[in-house]
Nucleic acid binder design. Structure first.
Length: 828
RNA sequence: GCAAGGGUAGCGAAGUGGUCAAACGCGCGGGACUCAAGAUCCCGUCUCUCAGUGAGUUCACAGGUUCGAAUCCUGUCCCUUGCACCA
């Protein structure tokens, strides 16, 4: 028997990849005639180990979408770039004794090659690399704009310090409180002057804007809301030694229940509160806390509440009661003023603290099942022990008490946020240099715009602390103001700075004069579909919203949000069930799979397993299913001749076009593929189909399997690129549910025939050789010509008769049993 | 602890009030082809019944709403992820 011709996929792939590149098929420009559509995947950090199937999945998801939109006559911007600055590159470079620059550039080259081999339809003319001074120049430019406006500033802050490395570490480098290089070394917290970006200025807009992000997964939106953490409450002024201190509470209704105050142990002005005779006590407590802060994070979490009396008293503004002020380890220093009013009866934390130090517990709200002896009651109820507010409902009392305080100018309604300012200082080499100069006379000044970029010096020593501090001649500079001797800032920026605006640079990647052309950004932005992992929910996905808003306020953008549509793709797991990663050793390389099955098979398989937002598992067996399908399609088109489609087929294909279009648009690729496979099953069974219908099938398949579809497109005589063809439009008039129903009746008949064959074999122990089907005269047309299919699918010769056919062969008079939609069957 | 998302046939995965014993793929069983294997094609794959159109028990568990529930409600258990003393 003739073996089907083995297909050389790699020849086909190379051929079309070359064609696409040569003819610049995926390059785009601003166009007035076409509507734009911006598809973007989060750009990768170009790791030296290259791409594996997990990456391939991510990019394939976006590529399918971009191809789909492109074929739907949209002007699709689909770019790719590399997040090439950052700690991993620096460390990998040190490890391999290479300079981060050459290490990174090699990695990028490799990435690009691999991505091209995946058949991704990027506009390669727009590639950006963040380590390119022409890129990070604009990081610095933005920084200076923020600096001018007070949004970039210096502040003392606690940072992670490894005593063995003798350097500051990024948060990512701290694992369970230990240095990642020295697993036995605890990271210390050091207070250092650091650069911050004042993202908190945008906290409210970032929070409220979440409601407008209709195309974002709820999960991400909730995470951001929790992270930004907006609370509505009341700011109350408590007097201490004639000075008024604001404290924040969401429960002013419990104000009469305040029995003590607690100030954070990290409060910068803590010592103001500590009286002479308590100094020793507090000092002892602080010392204890300090050693604790060096314990692993887990231990800290398990710690109970501790504190010490400061010796000071505050005046409760509602009843002038004198209440003691304690210092405590459980109060967050930079939230709500760093001091809390403690209501042990109605707050569990205060309750525990009060129990431990035997402080009074005063009940002021009577709910349904208070049991103040055991735990705090945080619910609603009616006020008691609260003067003129007694018997008022607690919800009402929130307003009433706030109003009362407002009258006395001792309180006001306010909101608080959990979001903290963004610490961007990194004592590392491979990042964007902060464009700041220190002069002993003039202080801190920003580098002049015309002097940007401040380029990274290439000659530095790696291995000990911040390499930039070893670039003596680089550090030495002239003061921007007075021209006198000055020194450069040696901190670099967090790599997330680079990714906070890269999507804008794609709009105008080569611009040397400005960060991007406003008109171009106006045309392309916002991103119509952003695709990336959920792990960035509270980092990149907040930062890029912040930058967008800042650049808008600079007058560079008209939009408020970078994107209203975000898709979180799932992760690929290896065959061992764990997330695919090099360190785990379970990676599958696209090159290898490509060789064996062709990359289109891999692309198809990756998105056919499950909805792309779900985690999936690679399986060598599973890919066979996709491989079979691809081969069938190739073989079909290699020998197909076209004619006229049957009515039934026209119905089928138009229904498929309709469904597949909406499935792909909704990222339900897995369902789209099933429908394409079913359609192809029918195509194979049809005697002939119209060329136009065959084209439609290929076009739909092309978004998943672009290489072989280009090949087949040309095989059937086309000269254009299928990648640029128009997506088929369903002709709804041709969809005929009746024909579909008739198809089901035939299916049922086949099922029945097979069932009887099985029964005869089992019960009567004899083989069936042929069969006869008896149908009602008015249904004859449904079964016309079906004898072949039924024969094929039951493996016996089938003849179909009308019940009223006088010449029919019917020894057991089965035709008597016939009902509408249920033909009679006789087998022998 | 709080929040979000889940638990569907051997496995993966669709389905979110009737057309559901539940698409599709993998696996498995049978058959055709072949000297044979592979590939390919066809059939089957909850249980029972049977020369067919039938019955029964299912969609984590327990209740409930409904003429009708995998799908809605309540409670419980389990999983995954995120946040974690934010007053």
């Amino acid at each position: 028997m003739a073996r089907e011709k083995k297909i050389n996929f790699s020849v086909i792939e190379k051929k079309w990849q070359r064609e696409w590149e040569k003819k610049k098929v995926f390059q785009v420009n601003e166009s007035r005639s076409k509507k734009k559509f911006y598809v973007l995947e989060m750009y990768p950090y170009p790791s030296g180990s290259g791409l594996h199937m997990g990456h391939a999945l991510n990019y394939t998801i976006g590529d399918i979408y971009a191809r789909f939109k492109r074929m739907n006559d949209l002007n699709v911007l689909y770019p790719m770039g590399y997040d090439s600055l950052g700690l991993p590159a620096e460390n990998a470079a040190i490890k391999t004794h290479m300079h981060p620059k050459s290490y990174t550039e090699k990695a990028i080259k490799n990435f690009i090659r691999q991505q091209k081999e995946l058949g991704l339809s990027y506009d390669w003319s727009r590639v950006i690399e963040t380590h390119d001074p022409n890129y990070y120049k604009w990081d610095q430019w933005i920084f200076l704009k923020m600096f001018e406006r007070g949004l970039a500033f210096r502040k003392k802050a606690p940072v992670n310090w490894c005593p063995k490395c003798n350097t500051v570490l990024a948060n990512e480098q701290v694992h369970n409180g230990m240095c990642w290089r020295h697993k036995d070394t605890e990271v210390e917290i050091k207070q250092l002057e650091q650069w911050f970006l004042k993202i908190t200025d945008y906290a409210d807009e970032l929070y409220e804007g979440i409601n407008k992000l209709n195309g974002w997964p709820d999960r991400i939106k909730t995470m951001q809301k929790n992270w930004i953490g907006k609370s509505y409450g009341t700011e109350i002024l408590f007097e201490v030694d004639g000075e008024k201190w604001p404290i924040f509470t969401t429960r002013p209704d419990t104000l009469f229940g305040v029995t003590f105050m607690v100030i954070s142990a990290q409060h910068p002005e803590l010592m103001k509160f500590v009286t002479k005779d308590q100094k020793k006590n507090v000092g002892k407590f602080l010392k204890k806390i300090k050693t604790v802060s060096q314990k692993s994070i887990k231990e800290v979490e398990e710690l109970d509440k501790q504190g010490a009396f400061t010796g000071s008293y505050a005046i409760n503004p509602i009843n002038n009661e004198k209440i003691p002020i304690w210092v405590g380890n459980f109060v967050v220093a930079d939230y709500g003023g760093g001091i809390v009013m403690a209501v042990p009866a109605h707050d569990q934390r205060d309750f525990e603290f009060a129990k431990k130090y035997k402080l009074p517990i005063k009940e002021v709200i009577r709910g349904k099942n208070n049991n103040i002896k055991q735990r705090a009651y945080a619910g609603e109820g009616n006020l008691i022990n609260s003067g003129k507010f007694n018997s008022m409902n607690s919800k009402k009392a929130i307003n009433a008490i706030t109003k009362e305080l407002q009258k006395k100018k001792l309180g006001k309604i306010t909101t608080e946020f959990k979001l903290k300012d963004w610490l961007i200082s990194r004592q590392r080499y491979w990042g964007t240099p902060i464009p700041i100069v220190y002069c002993d006379k003039c202080g801190i000044t920003g580098v002049k715009e015309k002097d940007l970029p401040v380029k990274l010096p290439e000659k530095v020593k790696f291995g000990k602390g911040n390499p930039l501090t070893t670039a003596k001649s680089w550090i030495k500079t002239k003061c921007v103001k007075c021209g006198g001797p000055a020194r450069r800032e040696t901190d670099t920026m967090d790599t997330f700075v680079n990714s906070s605006w890269y999507f804008l640079r794609y709009c105008d990647p080569q611009n040397k004069k400005v960060i991007f052309d406003k008109k171009k950004a106006d045309y392309w932005m916002p991103i119509d579909q952003y695709i990336g992992g959920a792990e960035h929910a509270c980092m990149h996905l907040i930062y890029f919203r912040f930058y967008t808003k800042f650049l808008r306020d600079l007058g560079l953008l008209k939009i408020d949000e970078p994107t209203y549509n975000l898709f979180n793709q799932g992760m690929l797991h290896g065959e061992d069930g764990f997330v695919m990663s090099k360190s785990r050793g379970n990676v599958v390389l696209p090159e290898k799979v490509s060789k064996k099955y062709g990359i289109d098979t891999a692309r198809l398989f990756l998105v056919s397993l499950a909805n792309p937002d779900k985690d999936i598992q690679w399986s060598e067996k599973g890919i066979q299913g996709s491989f079979r399908f691809i081969n069938k399609v190739m073989n079909y088109f290699n020998k197909s001749k076209f004619g006229k489609s049957s009515k039934k087929f026209e119905s089928k294909i138009n229904k498929t076009i309709k469904d597949v279009s909406s499935d792909v648009d909704g990222f339900r690729y897995n369902l789209a593929i099933i429908k394409l496979k079913k359609l192809f099953d029918v195509i194979e069974k049809e005697e002939k189909i119209a060329e136009k219908d065959a084209e439609s099938f290929l076009k739909m398949l092309a978004v998943f399997c672009p290489h072989i579809c280009e090949e087949l497109w040309h095989k059937i005589g086309k000269k254009s690129f299928i990648s640029l063809e128009k997506w088929p439009v369903a002709d709804l008039k041709k969809i005929d549910e009746k024909l579909e129903a008739q198809e089901k009746v035939v299916e049922k008949l086949i099922e029945d025939v097979n069932n009887i064959i099985k029964l005869v074999k089992e019960k009567q122990k004899k083989a069936v050789k042929r069969g006869f089907v008896y149908v009602l005269p008015n249904e004859k047309q449904i079964y016309a010509g079906k004898d072949d299919i039924i024969s094929k699918r039951s493996n016996i010769k089938i003849e179909i008769f009308a019940v009223n056919d006088k010449n029919k062969y019917d020894p057991e008079n089965k035709s008597k049993k016939v009902k509408p939609g249920r033909p009679g069957i006789y087998l022998e």
